[in-house]
Design a protein around this nucleic acid. Structure first.
Length: 602
RNA sequence: GCCGAUGUAGCUCAGUGGUAGAGCAUUCGAUUCGUAAUCGAACGGUCGGCGGUUCAAAUCCGCUCAUCGGCUCCA
């Protein structure tokens, strides 16, 4: 039997929730920086903030830091902690700070000084080391338990987060009030690893990657494909109820399509290279590209007819697979891939219909999350950053579009936050952000209001007064990417899919080969009413069959032996409730059908 | 794309210059079994790829591909 889940008796506050931890971590980061400079005198220190579960510091130093160096740095830190150095705050003038920085020759600190506001404070560790810092800190390094501190990893990080600036070396560490908290933190990290969709996806046989196929290009096995299809079918049904119309469009198109939309100008580097027939065509940019977006295709369908206002809103929907040449360092599992399927739809609406239609879309998205039991997400209003010039369209159009989104979420009373600079190049978005098992954030659902592509493609409809008017487009995808959604779902469910989504819903386990025919008969009865059932034909002992079924996270197992054959019953054992005893065959099937229909467990 | 780490059997992993290993899985045999691992045998690897150093390379060096963590990017 697996060990029962230990109770989370030890609480692990985040930095933002605990003044004490904020102090410990701030000071620990300084101690780490002092240790690094002691071991690597050429190291320049830059910034060293706390994170929600620890801290980091960025260094500029000529030789590369490796994982090996962390041990030596940690050892040096312990020495400093044990010396109980007082942490002293000193307020200085800007001129004084500048003078002292110049004395020690650390140019990064001068840049930092230029961006901070008075009061300018310096924190000293004894009289041996100091840095510009706003605090807060513990009073002396002895307050930090060396056994509650650990260094976790090294990584490259650009100065000021700018890829054009120098790359620094970042050390991530963590620090807690006591060793028990540190141990608990590590235990939870281990636990999180077990939920990782890459690990579970392999174990459950849902998808694979192949070196010969290429990075970021998942291949879906039968079980994974069942899952995908179920999600697609579910959303298609919801969309039919809401007046969406299905379309199918090709995977490639002339480059000109994306020049018209602006994608080529904006994202050429992130698209798979153009297919050209010869050098001349290459030179003249005459060729085909794999589609990175579905919208220009749907626009073509809109434009294939003169549209009347009576047809609007026109909602064209497609599970469209797109290809984007993501940077190699960005790829990972299903959350960031180079080929993925968007549950895409483009809604062509009159300006008057925009608010209502937007609200309807948000309603659909929220109901999708609810039915998938995805409860933890944030709504982000992704607006443009007015200081950047990567956007197309006029000021006026942008503020209208942003206003529409803000009105909609406020009217619905949703909690949200605004993120400047997160807009698409053609319009603002409402994005739904989820966390994976390792607490990294991913965008799933999205709704975008777009006045610009209708402009670029010259879209029109005939209004009631006979005049030609321009429609507004709403781009929307509740799942966002089917691949990413499945990655998040696997982690959210820890591999235990609800019955309606489980690739194998029921498995019949014969106590011995003698009962195989009865098991087969039972499986056929289930299959005939649409229950995904199979028989364990391994010939293993029952205990082993159960173990395998549990490892594969089969939701419902049915043991069949002499007793069951005799009474036409099944001994049911479920993932969620364990042994349920014998139940009549007809009742088992009815209960399974009902649970699947209602998206409940057996 | 950048910084660092990793890559050994289908899977999880041992093996630090001298004849490639374990457990699980697979196949075969025995067992016909009642709620998380029955026993035995066999099969299985150009040690990610290419090149170099060496009498000798899984092991050392270079390049390359892929994966992982982070940065940057994300229509």
């Amino acid at each position: 039997m697996p060990a029962p889940e230990p109770q989370n008796a030890i609480s692990l506050p985040r930095s933002s929730e605990s003044e004490e931890l904020k102090k410990i971590r701030h000071t620990a980061s300084h101690v780490m920086a002092m240790a690094v400079q002691k071991l690597f005198p050429k190291a320049q220190v830059t910034i060293g903030p706390t994170t929600e579960s620890g801290f980091y510091y960025d260094f500029d130093l000529p030789e590369p830091l490796t994982t090996q160096d962390l041990k030596a740095i940690k050892k040096e830190m312990v020495k400093i902690l044990k010396r109980k150095l007082p942490v002293l705050r000193e307020e200085v003038t800007r001129e004084e700070a500048k003078r002292r920085i110049e004395d020690i020759g650390e140019p990064y600190k001068l840049e930092i000084l230029a961006t901070i506001q008075e009061p300018i404070t310096i924190y000293h560790l004894g009289n041996e080391w100091w840095d510009l810092c706003a605090g807060p800190h513990v009073e002396n390094t002895g307050e930090i338990n060396p056994k509650a501190v650990d260094l976790e990893s090294v990584a490259g990080a650009y100065w000021r987060g700018d890829a054009n600036k120098a790359q620094l070396q970042r050390i991530y560490g963590t620090a807690w009030e006591n060793p028990a908290q540190l141990a608990e933190y590590k235990r939870r990290k281990q636990e999180a690893l077990k939920r990782d969709h890459r690990k579970l996806g392999k174990e459950l046989g849902l998808f694979i990657f192949s070196d010969l196929v290429g990075p970021g290009l998942p291949l879906w096995t039968p079980k994974g494909t069942i899952l995908r299809s179920l999600l697609e079918d579910y959303l298609k049904q919801e969309q039919i109820k809401r007046g969406y119309l299905p379309v199918v469009t090709p995977h490639i198109a002339r480059i000109d399509l994306f020049k018209t939309s602006g994608h080529w100008q904006q994202y050429q580097e992130d698209m798979f290279p153009m297919m050209a027939e010869d050098d001349d065509s290459w030179e003249l940019e005459r060729g085909f590209v794999l589609k990175p977006m579905n919208c220009p295709f749907h626009i073509q369908i809109y434009q294939s007819n003169l549209r009347s206002y009576r047809e609007l809103p026109l909602r064209l929907a497609e599970f469209g697979t797109v290809y984007r040449y993501e940077q190699s360092g960005e790829l990972g599992g299903l959350t960031r891939v180079r080929g993925f399927t968007v549950d895409d739809s483009h809604l062509f609406v009159t300006p008057e219909q925009l608010d209502e239609e937007f609200a309807q879309v948000v309603d659909l998205i929220l109901s999708v999350f609810k039915n998938l039991k995805l409860e933890k997400f944030k709504a982000r209003l992704s607006f443009r950053d007015p200081t950047e010039d990567k956007y197309i369209g006029s000021e006026e159009v942008w503020s209208t579009a942003e206003g529409a989104i803000r009105r909609a979420v406020e009217k619905m009373g949703m909690e949200y936050f605004v993120a400047l600079g997160e807009a698409a190049f053609y319009g603002p978005k409402l994005d739904f952000i989820f966390e994976d098992a390792l607490e990294r954030e991913w965008q799933l659902g999205t709704v975008q209001v777009d006045y610009n592509l209708p402009e670029r493609f010259n879209l029109e409809y005939v209004a009631a007064d006979g005049s030609r008017q321009r429609p507004v487009m709403i781009h929307r995808a509740p799942f966002g990417s089917l691949e990413r959604l499945i990655g998040i779902l696997i982690e959210e469910y820890a591999g235990d899919f609800p019955l309606w989504l489980a690739p194998v819903q029921g498995r019949l386990l014969p106590v011995s080969d003698e009962f195989l025919p009865f098991a087969q008969e039972m499986a056929r009865s289930m299959l005939s009413v649409g229950i995904r059932a199979e028989v364990d034909t391994s010939g293993e002992r029952l205990g082993k069959q159960i173990r395998n079924g549990e490892k594969e996270k089969i939701p419902v197992m049915a043991v069949v032996g002499a007793k069951e054959l005799e009474s036409r019953t099944l001994s049911i054992r479920t993932r969620t409730s364990g042994e349920l005893g014998t139940i009549a065959v007809g009742e088992v099937i009815e209960r399974m059908k009902e649970a699947i229909f209602n998206r409940k467990n057996f």
